[in-house]
């Protein structure tokens, strides 16, 4: 196995594109190294992206916030501005693993590992985040919901690397929130989860995005659920409509972590609770 630590994204992309055997990007390694240790992956080349300066930045500009691909969960947590603007995205990322894992794990690794239960993903999708994808020859910007295509699968071509996640600029009264259900209090994988992002105008929900995790092969953006609360003050009736829309959008499996019925029901419950938190964070009453 070869290990490379280039200093530009393009170089990293070229290294991977040029490798005949199996090649992996190494961000925090909290998925990749576990896979290697248990024999699920046996790469010929590992390209560490932590030495690429662009990957380590958190930058706020007029158009929003740009979070580098190698930024760890604990660095997100210590960024006060980001926490204020996108508390849901940060709390979702901070739910990953433990303190030790937080020191390493990245949002982008979470996204590219493409687990349907990945915690930061529904929050990013609800936030309307975009991924900046860099290949050996060109770069493109794609909505986060277009990255994962199924468990363990992404739409990235060989040699394509995500350089950053771009969160849109926050305007007016807005808030987001993410909740997951796990049987324990920590160190667990979401049985079902929900991220909600909304903005308010005159005390009513003006825009909203609702995204569910662990209820299908990829995170599910539920437009009907968003519609159910737009124009409302999150009264019981619209919340119930939203919960029902969430349950209807679920296409989960029964497995060791939960049943179809359970996930379907609790998806609605969590979406309701997350919506209430987001509403409160946006200053709604």
């Amino acid at each position: 196995m070869r290990y490379e630590a280039p200093t530009t994204t393009k170089e990293a992309a070229s290294l991977i594109a040029g490798e005949k055997g199996e090649a992996f990007v190494l961000a925090g390694g909290t998925d990749l190294l576990v896979r290697m240790k248990t024999g699920l992956s046996d790469p010929d080349l590992v390209v560490d992206i932590k030495h690429i300066p662009a990957m380590q930045d958190i930058k706020t500009t007029d158009s929003g916030t740009k979070i580098g691909g190698a930024v760890s969960g604990s660095r997100l947590n210590s960024n006060k501005k980001l926490k204020k603007a996108w508390p849901g995205v940060v709390e979702a990322t901070n739910l990953i693993g433990s303190d030790q894992i937080q020191g390493r794990a990245t949002m982008v690794g979470n996204l590219c590992n493409a687990s349907p239960a990945a915690d930061s993903v529904p929050a990013m999708i609800a936030a309307g985040a975009k991924a900046v994808v860099v290949g050996p020859t060109k770069r493109r910007t794609v909505p986060v919901e277009k990255i994962a295509t199924g468990p363990g699968r992404t739409s990235l071509a060989k040699g394509e690397i995500i350089e950053s996640i771009n969160l849109p600029k926050r305007t007016g009264k807005s808030g987001d929130a993410y909740l997951r259900f796990i049987p324990r209090t920590e160190m667990d994988i979401a049985v079902v989860s929900a991220g909600v992002n909304l903005t308010l105008e005159k005390g009513l929900v003006k825009t909203a995005r609702v995204c569910l995790g662990a209820v299908g092969p990829t995170a599910v953006l539920v437009q009907k659920a968003a519609k159910a609360i737009i124009g409302s003050k999150l009264d019981e009736e619209s919340l119930k409509k939203m919960a029902d829309a969430c349950s209807a959008a679920c296409n989960p499996i029964s497995d060791k972590r939960g049943t179809v019925e359970y996930r379907t029901k609790v998806a609605g419950v969590l979406a309701k609770r997350a919506a209430k938190i987001a509403f409160e964070r946006a200053g709604g009453k």
């Binding site: 049987p183 324990r184 209090t185 920590e186 160190m187 667990d188 994988i189 497995d255 060791k256 972590r257």
Partner: peptide
């Protein structure tokens, strides 16, 4: 056996 590991065989963690 489907859960031969501590991730899906859930012994309590401290905060539980």
């Amino acid at each position: 056996l489907q859960n031969a590991g501590f991730l899906d065989y859930r012994i309590p963690v401290c905060s539980d």
